[in-house]
Design a protein around this nucleic acid. Structure first.
Lengths: 275, 275
DNA sequence: TTCCAGATGGAATTTTTGTTCCATTTCTGG
DNA sequence: CCAGAAATGGAACAAAAATTCCATCTGGAA
């Protein structure tokens, strides 16, 4: 029987690719998995750029398109683009959505919107006002660190735990001080000259965090502080301080800007070390 | 004074165009209005196709781009594409775009800016597209939960650990599954009907998280999933799913939108319970 | 009405992009 | 271990794209 022809929408294409996972040649499989993981890349990239990112030859992309029954890469790309076209909600749809939400008189929706607004505000403010020199110096402080200690409790713990994850991915040796079993002091006991530490704390500053910062200082560890004010007790102990003013909503501070800095620090340190 | 350079994101571009509405030549105004009305067309079309649709000469599009300070149509188009793309352009791409401007811009600075851009994009996108009904149902699912179990490992752990902190502040009984000492299964062992669970997972989905989600389901626990795709293995197990598409930069996904949802959920549940 | 600066249309040019082709390598079945 | 077939890489090619250039047109000031 004649071929059904290639899938005409993204969902069908996904299924098709998944179904043929077994009987595709190695390089084409590589492309298939790249494509499903980075659909936006396929939608916007050029054959050359995608090939480079997926670590494949341009011709392989064309072969892949043919294998799925398309006339060329361009046709395949069209499927990936249509997916993005469909997804964007029109202005009217959004209005309708808001109307429905208002009628229901939901308080929860307002809460969510409040936190999203706080996050957006924090981020755009930081973009405007951060001194890039300070960030540069912060990176410079961490780069030579033998081991990087990550200190942050309570509200700040998500930040340090994320940094620990990211640094692990990037092969940066680090120790996450989590205060487990009340052993924060012991965990920090191995800090020594040649190491570096990141201490994260916001008002009201956890007493234990402050103590650990002072301790690090005494041991000759280079100290980077992420905090909310120059008057913060950890600011005075630090060699470099990044001041982050997060917006808050209903008593809870956003963490969006701080998390972005945490990620950027990790990646920038890895980048500088790779040079 | 020197030019500030052209807008680097869609929102800024919109403002710029609106601001200069008066002093643009007729044909350029025609393009401006077409562009704002059909942003997708600009993102995906070619100079020729857009020119035909907007009833304009191709060269006018290039002139329009120049008038706004871009080097060519390609650069302008990139702004329209970034609106749809969930990936922030890499430093190399950005460098290419900034050709001629502050070449002094440090590499680390670009990294930070990239993560901030990703965070901002994630947040504003979520604001646009989240279905408030879904959020409402998510809150409704958690409110009656006797104890709320928080499941999220690796990259998602910062999210659940923050929720645990916030819920603690708000007197919401919760158990944070942290997988400490390999005891995740045991920690989750007390889940029972009448409880609720939040499971957070993004590709590549940690096998243990998926197993815990299935386990929760079997035990009759109401399950809320925060994940990145309807195809996610935890989506099918969940009673309610919130789909979050975070932008990524240099291979790391932003967590800004997810963290905002985490905070909002905690506060909204507390609010509803207080009623 | 005449002049001129700026705007416009459209062809020519340059650059980029997708595709094809073929020599070389890597698998597979006997 | 050896054909033969399939897959792969990379350069060459063709097609399509963006951009530039310049002759023509338009609208306003003198």
């Amino acid at each position: 029987m004649a071929d059904d022809g290639p899938p005409r929408d993204f969902q069908a294409l996904r299924t098709e690719i998944a179904g043929r996972a077994g009987d595709l040649p190695k390089r084409l499989m590589q492309i298939a998995s790249y494509a499903l993981d980075n659909p936006d890349e396929i939608a916007f990239g050029t054959v050359a750029s995608i090939a480079a990112n997926a670590d494949v030859q341009p011709s392989a992309l064309v072969r892949f398109s043919h294998a799925l029954g398309y006339q060329g890469f361009t046709q395949l790309q069209e499927i990936f683009r249509s997916r993005l076209r469909d997804r964007v909600p029109s202005y009217d749809e959004r209005l309708a959505q808001l109307r429905g939400h208002d009628t229901a008189g939901s308080r929860s929706g307002l809460v969510l919107d409040g936190f999203l607004a706080a996050a957006g505000q924090s981020v755009s403010r930081l973009r405007e006002q951060l001194d890039h020199d300070v960030f540069e110096r912060a990176v410079g402080l961490l780069v030579p660190g033998e081991t990087i200690y990550l200190i942050g409790l309570r509200r700040s713990f998500p930040v340090t735990s994320y940094m620990s994850y990211a640094m692990g991915q990037l092969s940066i040796r680090n120790v996450l001080i989590d205060g487990l079993a009340g052993m924060a002091a012991e965990q920090a006991g191995f800090m020594a000259a040649g190491d570096a530490a990141v201490v994260v704390s916001f008002a009201p500053y956890a007493a234990e965090t402050v103590a650990l910062a002072v301790r690090a200082r005494e041991r000759g560890v280079e100290l980077l502080a992420l905090t909310d004010s120059v008057f913060s007790p950890i600011a005075s102990a630090a060699d470099v301080m990044i001041e982050i003013s997060e917006s808050h909503f209903d008593g809870f501070r956003s963490l969006a800007a701080t998390m972005a800095i945490a990620m950027a620090l990790s990646v920038a340190v890895a980048g500088r070390r790779a040079e």
